[in-house]
């Protein structure tokens, strides 16, 4: 029973993180929410008896994908609705 409640908590957390990642305007938070989805997926793969897939998702989904999104945001714009900044001509993070 406690096992079932844990699984349902994980599923709700995952779907909530997905909705948050789509709705959130600040892309930094959205990317972290994508990392949370991957983290929950890792636990679910382990529960569903797939340890190989869980290891892959932990290394690639949580670490590498999140980092590569973060580097892209650093090199481009942080906010979703931000329009062109043609007058500035330099990275907005600096």
């Amino acid at each position: 029973m406690i096992y079932l409640i844990l699984i349902f908590f994980l599923l709700i957390l995952m779907v909530g993180a997905a909705i948050y990642a789509v709705v959130q305007k600040d892309l930094l938070y959205a990317v972290i929410a994508t990392g949370v989805i991957s983290l929950v997926l890792t636990v679910l793969f382990y529960i569903l008896q797939a340890p190989d897939v869980a290891l892959t998702e932990a290394a690639i989904g949580v670490a590498l994908t999140t980092i590569i999104f973060l580097i892209t945001i650093r090199n481009t714009l942080r906010h979703e609705d931000e329009y062109s900044n043609k007058d500035k001509f330099k990275s907005p993070t600096k």
Partner: peptide, 21 residues
Amino acid sequence: SLIKIVIGLSIIDGGIHLLLI
């Protein structure tokens, strides 16, 4: 936003992986 679209693609990826497993 282009980055949002790529985030959406990676969310689709995760869903399909969970479905197959």
